[in-house]
Simulated scan of single mutants.
Amino acid sequence: MTATTTRPAGASGTGKPKLRTSAMIASFADPGQKTTPAPFGHALVAAARENEKIVGLTADLGKYTDMHIFAQEFPERFVQVGMAEQLLFGAAAGMAETGLIPFASTYSVFAARRAYDFICLDIAEPELNVNIVGGLPGLTTGYGPSHQATEDMAIFRGMPNLTIVDPCDSVDIAAAVPQLADHPGPTYLRLLRGQVPTVLDEYDYTFELGKAKVLRDGTDVVFVSSGLMTMRALLAAEALAADNVSVAVVHSPTIKPFDAETVLRELDTDRLAVTLENHSVTGGLFEATAAAVVRAGLGRQITPIALPDAFLDAGALPTLHDRYGLSTDRVRDRVLELLG
Score class of each variant (00 low, 15 high):
41 G>D: 04
14 T>V: 04
41 G>E: 05
32 G>L: 04
14 T>A: 11
13 G>P: 13
11 A>C: 08
25 I>D: 10
47 A>F: 03
42 H>V: 07
48 A>V: 10
48 A>Q: 03
41 G>F: 09
40 F>Q: 00
27 S>I: 11
16 K>G: 05
48 A>N: 03
25 I>A: 12
27 S>C: 10
35 T>P: 12
35 T>R: 11
24 M>A: 14
10 G>S: 10
38 A>D: 15
29 A>M: 13
43 A>N: 02
48 A>P: 03
27 S>N: 13
28 F>Q: 07
48 A>F: 07
33 Q>R: 14
47 A>M: 05
23 A>H: 06
44 L>Y: 02
24 M>V: 08
38 A>F: 12
47 A>G: 01
32 G>H: 03
30 D>W: 14
8 P>V: 01
24 M>R: 09
32 G>F: 04
11 A>L: 01
26 A>P: 03
15 G>E: 05
6 T>E: 14
41 G>W: 08
7 R>C: 00
9 A>R: 04
13 G>I: 11
46 A>L: 06
33 Q>A: 15
21 T>E: 11
24 M>N: 09
22 S>V: 01
15 G>Y: 04
14 T>L: 13
17 P>G: 08
43 A>Q: 03
29 A>F: 10
26 A>R: 08
42 H>I: 06
17 P>K: 10
32 G>W: 03
32 G>I: 06
9 A>H: 00
28 F>P: 01
9 A>S: 02
8 P>F: 07
33 Q>S: 14
16 K>C: 00
37 P>H: 11
16 K>M: 10
38 A>S: 15
8 P>L: 04
44 L>C: 08
40 F>M: 01
37 P>E: 14
12 S>P: 00
45 V>M: 05
27 S>Y: 11
6 T>G: 04
17 P>Y: 09
16 K>P: 00
27 S>A: 14
17 P>T: 09
45 V>D: 06
20 R>S: 12
43 A>G: 02
45 V>Y: 02
11 A>F: 01
21 T>Y: 06
6 T>A: 12
34 K>L: 15
9 A>I: 09
43 A>C: 05
21 T>R: 06
21 T>M: 02
39 P>Q: 02
19 L>F: 02
31 P>I: 07
30 D>M: 14
36 T>H: 14
17 P>V: 07
19 L>N: 09
47 A>K: 07
28 F>E: 08
26 A>G: 09
29 A>E: 13
36 T>I: 15
40 F>R: 00
47 A>H: 03
18 K>D: 07
12 S>I: 12
36 T>A: 13
32 G>P: 02
7 R>K: 08
13 G>A: 09
